[in-house]
Design a protein around this nucleic acid. Structure first.
Lengths: 349, 349
DNA sequence: CTGAAAGCGCTTACAG
DNA sequence: CTGAAAGCGCTTACAG
């Protein structure tokens, strides 16, 4: 069943059928109706390979997702897919391993599949610096800022990680916490972690204190298992902590388990804060205090920018941060009785 | 940069270049080396659209995933992707909404993309009965059994849901629980839920009791939020339950939160069992007792069957169940002091 | 072993 | 408004 069959059955040429199928002008109503009738009857759908071959290949968009376990990315994917669909665009999802090279994968895809553009969910600056210029189509990066990567034509939308991390420290400080441990991605590898750590360090300085990274910072990958083991190491080394800030909700879940396994309770003995604001954070017991990244807005800005860049021909590259929110829930204990009331129910604000 | 450029640069015809690229016999070593040299130098990669057009379209496999929030499916996808890659096959992931028609989507893809085969993660028998025969390529279904759907050419690999659910009830029974609530998918819509419920009912009968579905069964979708609300309804209606069995770990997480919000503790006041055995279940506090489905084996069997069906030309369709394991962890309290020891640390076995 | 040529299923100037 | 024809970038009989 190909376009020639339809043409024959409809009594028109393949050119006319093609024009009908593509909603091109210059077709009589009679022809249009007749062709559509046959198409419907036969359940015909054009071969996408042939179509894209002819139309110079640029078929769909590619979403490059770093890691399969990142629940925030799942939320973003879900929204982005809907947005692409609404714009009548196909989007194909490619998961790449957390420590694989997402840019190399994209270069390869660019060559063999000719996507219209790439939406990156997470990315390693080293990979981008090494290969980005080899990508021939518009690219947008989400959750990382590429502002300082010096790459022409790459846009990025992200949460201001340093500021958000600073807010967490401010909040903990306000609750009377001074001995705070940090568990997050390796700053050599994970740039968001590096920014968040900067925010922590600055916040400490703001409060006239110094963050002792040597003792109170423990790096790990973004998974529950890694969070668990990192917390075990941290709690072993620094047994006087009153609070732990994990650079991801999934990490925080592992940390919570570790705290519990060492015989402590959250938040009675140790307070805990996460990052991302994924669904599970509000169902854990206790509900996890965390920084909510706005997955919906991130997805929308990213998809719109990508669509615009494709339409207008690769733009300059913009870098924007989207608002975040500190969700004050139940996993942080105020050490200052007077402040207790203020620390509760804050999510409503 | 197309195959003609390579041919010109290498000093051979496009036919020879194509043969080299496809590892066909009948090419001199000299030609092969020369062509590969140019290919490498130019970073050339053949246009997949053209290739597939010529090769009659069948390009890659399609993985149809029902719902984006199912963590078990995530595990299976991850394994399956690796397996396809190892077999040098491409696999494209399509997420379809939990209540959208995955078979209709597949029919559409079948027509426009001509995949080699479909791997379904989850599926609604109604959709399959309505449209399955319109799919022209081999299909394998995972996590549901299609044994009784009467569909020629569809294979399925799954956990024996009824048996597994029965084991859960047996275990709770053994721990002294009699007033057990069930929270799971709507049996009209979710066949796995219906099977699990059958298992529950049978197990009650085995123990000389009757399961009162009217009072003790509350349906919901497979998400934490739905689990939470369903549990609220159930606990409201049946306030004497000593245990709740949720038909999915994500549901169980919501249930745990609901139990806690009603002022009860798990397992001291109410015991809780999940289903699936996803990562998060072992990090929750308390660690969740659950049925572990073997995502790795499911993925392996599914991919192998699909590959074989494509190779040998659509086979008959086999239906196999894969072993499961009841992971006895911390969320179930034994009501019979003597049995306490046996109920703990069971995961090790 | 190699090349010239047909053809995969479409789209799109170009005529009429 | 419609049709005949060229061409998208490949693969693969068919000759030689």
């Amino acid at each position: 069943m190909d376009i020639r069959d339809i043409a024959r059955l409809a009594g028109y040429s393949v050119g006319t059928v093609s024009r009908v199928l593509n909603d091109h002008p210059g077709v009589s109503d009679r022809a249009r109706e007749r062709v559509l009738e046959v198409v419907r009857e036969m359940g015909y759908e054009p071969n996408a390979n042939a179509r894209h071959l002819k139309m110079r290949g640029r078929a769909s968009f590619a979403i490059m997702v770093k890691g399969m376990q990142n629940m925030l990315f799942n939320d973003i994917i879900e929204k982005a897919e809907g947005l692409f669909a609404a714009a009548d665009e196909e989007a194909r999802i490619h998961f790449v391993d957390e420590d694989a090279d997402e840019v190399a994968r994209a270069i390869h895809l660019d060559r063999i599949r000719h996507p219209k553009g790439f939406l990156f969910l997470g990315g390693d600056p080293n990979n981008f610096r090494a290969g980005f210029e080899q990508i021939s189509v518009p690219c947008v990066l989400l959750t990382n800022t590429a502002e300082e990567w010096g790459l022409r034509g790459l846009s990025s939308f992200s949460t201001n990680d340093a500021e958000a991390a600073g807010c967490v420290i401010d909040y903990l400080w306000e609750c009377g916490h001074r001995r705070i441990g940090i568990i997050g991605g390796d700053r050599e590898v994970s740039e968001v972690s590096s920014h968040r750590l900067d925010g922590v360090v600055c916040a400490f300085e703001r409060h006239g204190a110094t963050f002792d990274a040597e003792r109170c910072y423990e790096p790990c990958r973004f998974s529950m298992g890694d969070g668990y083991h990192a917390a075990m190491r941290l709690l072993e080394r620094a047994d006087d902590l009153t609070a732990v800030f994990a650079f991801g909700d999934v990490i925080a879940l592992g940390v919570q388990r570790a705290i519990s396994d060492r015989g402590f309770r959250v938040p009675a003995d140790i307070s805990l804060v996460g990052f991302d604001g994924v669904d599970v954070s509000q169902y854990s017991v206790p509900r996890l205090t965390t920084v909510r990244q706005d997955a919906g807005l991130l997805a929308r800005k990213g998809v719109e920018a990508l669509l615009a860049a494709v339409r207008d021909g690769g733009a300059e590259g913009v870098h924007e941060s989207v608002p975040f929110r500190l969700l004050r829930r139940e996993s942080v204990l105020s050490l200052r009785p007077a402040a207790t009331a203020g620390a509760k129910g804050g999510e409503r604000s």
